[in-house]
Amino acid sequence: MLRIDAGGLHYRELNHLIRQAVAEGESEIVLDQVNGQRYIGDGLQGNVTIRIKGTPGQDLAAFMDGPTIRVEGNAQDAVANTMNLGKVIISGQAGDVLGYAMRGGKLYVAKDAGYRIGIHMKSYRSQVPVIIIGGKVGDFLGEYMAGGVLMVLGMTEEEFPPRPLAGDYLGVGMHGGAIYLRGTIDPDQIGKEISPAEMSEEDHRLLRKELAEFCQDMGWDLEKVLEVPFLKLVPISHRPYGGHYSY
């Protein structure tokens, strides 16, 4: 195991040290005193686990291809941007535009996340990206989503006034994949390209499997998560704008 004190290090130095360690075969790296350094894990490949103590900067795990990153704290915007493979586990909150165009791997956030989560996520062959947000999220969840699985659990403390699971314009332009919400949502918040769908046996199996992994990583009780029924939302068409053109 390698420990790096990230305190005062510029991201370029820090990421250079990480890449160097991974190239030398290091499989476990702990970063102490992380304070806003961007691009940790950017384009990183390999079988390595990075534990981050502190708050990593934006574009954490962008273009990442395999490693596991555990953040013991909050994360900023654009986590798992265009990530291909790997896993990011955040024990706190995270910012906006998480998992943009993510093609594979998993992104878990224990608490709330911001706007535009899982935009243009897509699946490819055996790669099915999964984002699970333990708390609530803002507007434009799953906008332009083309594949993969998005779950919002909303399991944060009671708020007053109560806030919905997700904001407005949910799944606008969505044309692939599925969104699962633990609970319900006002139909007015849902984009016109998606609609609720019946939960099948397969959906229940998928939920249990993915949530079991999430709960294990977060130390949560799976049965408690599954106590509340989920709402499944899927796109109405794989080609939402096919009829917009005259040839």
């Binding site: 935009i119 699946s123 083309a146 692939g176």
Partner: peptide, 11 residues
């Protein structure tokens, strides 16, 4: 890296 036959939408 998308499924065959789906529209490729660039926002």
């Amino acid at each position: 890296m998308i499924p065959m036959g789906t529209d490729a939408l660039s926002p």
